[in-house]
Design a protein around this nucleic acid. Structure first.
Lengths: 276, 276
DNA sequence: CGAACGGTTGACAAGGGTCAAGTTCGGTGG
DNA sequence: CCACCGAACTTGACCCTTGTCAACCGTTCG
């Protein structure tokens, strides 16, 4: 079972780079949007979180944005792009164990462990907004509702992982792919807008690494889903259009979409994550 | 891929049963022990947590101790025995997605979701200590160090799940079993005492459900590990004795034992979880 | 232009599932 | 005490799913 994320590209510690001179992110609080999704936060928190978050940083595909010595004191909010966390074996192979999409926070899982565990790598180019852990800690001490928001967000990530585990254990390859597509569809909050099109901006090799199968078989399974009339693909753009949503749900036994739902008064899809 | 936990046995809502008259658990705080493992807690927390925790309850194997309507307002600490959480499909099949051992806290994952997600079932007979969520919330508001402890404990569980995911994705069946045994060995904190013997108090069917394989193949893989001289089994007691710990580690690529380590000043193995 | 990468396809092999029969053991009832 | 039963484990035969290896094609990029 092979597992390769692209060889690590050069990366920078966030603290090495001071805030840029133009500050278009000022006044926009990605953290507030993310954290208030699962637990109500007052407008005061919005101001606090806006102050705490640092300048967005752009990373290239393949950049290591976090490991045992890089950004251990930061959590990172993904504003744009996909990232994954990997376990690195002694032989240097990387096994993808978690996937981060726009609107996810990276670094909660080893928040209290000094960030020792995983390496986080950009799967695409993207924008990342750092926040210093100690400042988030201070924020939580000042306002307890922030504690609940952080806890709820962490648990939400944990539930997504439980779902993936469920998917891996109980489904065969084709079904796993179908489930994965529906998971992305839900996490990207496309279900709410009844948008039936999404992009998988990664290679079939990466999809295989995520789902515990080979790139060859990913290709076969996708072809089969297409053959069955459940979806169509555009190879160039890596777009997928879901043709028969209901049939996909049935096939994948995907009935946990509620896991990914946000609070009703703060729909994720209705507001673009990138304000520029 | 079949998945069956024994048919649900009768179960009681914890609140239906007042504290017993004799109270041997008084003064003993399982929650303090668990929560202080990953983040330092003051002795004040010990008293608080001791007050908050309710009378231990004994459950039979197969009891449902938590679901969408049962104990939704409680977290449960496992003092004794094994439990698992399951996703229930529409056809009523149960898929095990998480395993709880003595010293684990049940109900953190859907803490903020009203406990809607999983059903938790005893895999063996066991003792469970409930605590009302709202009281834990109050405790966290009073003392911020408790927040860190709860967060760290949650994240620890999340990391264990990430490890299981890693195991499922990257290993074949025999290796998965080896990894699973090492995971248990580490989580039960036997590594510290260099104890090479442990008990799997569940059927091979359940092990298969946990690892995404059939009971038949679990049997074959265990036999093979025994044949290779890595361990011996006692069928009656369901005991396993590890003969070649180093070889098992190598085979399973298990190098994450640090994940399960407790704080040095509070070793889990040195103090029995059941004070009676 | 050629190299590198990602996707596709085919032939073949191996890992693991399925089914069925047999075994052991503990519990139950006569 | 023995007969019977069910649960769990074991083993063998067979077959399907998936991995492996290789060739080929289209695109992109230097």
């Amino acid at each position: 079972m092979s597992s390769l994320v692209e060889a690590a590209a050069p990366s920078l510690n966030i603290s090495q780079r001071p805030a840029a001179n133009s500050q278009p992110w000022q006044g926009y609080s990605l953290y507030f949007e993310i954290l208030s999704r699962h637990s109500p936060l007052s407008i005061t928190n919005r101001e606090t979180l806006t102050e705490l978050q640092q300048a967005p940083r752009r990373f290239k595909k393949g950049s290591v944005i976090k490991n045992h010595e890089l950004n251990t004191k930061y959590v990172l909010a993904i504003q744009n792009g996909w990232a994954c966390s990997c376990r690195v074996t002694e032989e240097g192979k990387r096994q993808i164990i978690d996937l981060y999409l726009p609107g996810d926070i990276v670094g909660l899982r080893d928040y209290h462990a000094g960030g020792r565990f995983d390496e986080v790598i950009m799967l695409t180019e993207g924008l990342v907004i750092p926040m210093h852990k100690s400042q988030l800690d201070l924020g939580m001490q000042k306002d307890h509702s922030l504690v609940n928001a952080v806890l709820a967000t962490s648990m939400h990530q944990c539930n997504i992982m439980a779902d993936r585990l469920n998917n891996l254990i109980s489904h065969d390859a084709t079904t796993r792919i179908a489930y994965f597509i529906l998971e992305l569809h839900a996490r990207l909050n496309l279900a709410r807008g009844e948008i039936q099109e999404l992009t998988l901006p990664v290679s079939q090799q990466v999809i295989g690494d995520l789902l515990g199968m080979t790139n060859v078989h990913v290709c076969r399974c996708l072809s089969q889903l297409e053959f069955q009339g459940l979806l169509t693909r555009d190879k160039e753009s890596r777009n997928i259009r879901i043709l028969d949503y209901a049939a996909l749900l049935t096939l994948a036994e995907f009935n946990t979409s509620y896991l990914y739902s946000c609070r009703v008064d703060n729909p994720r899809a209705s507001r673009p994550l990138n304000p520029h």
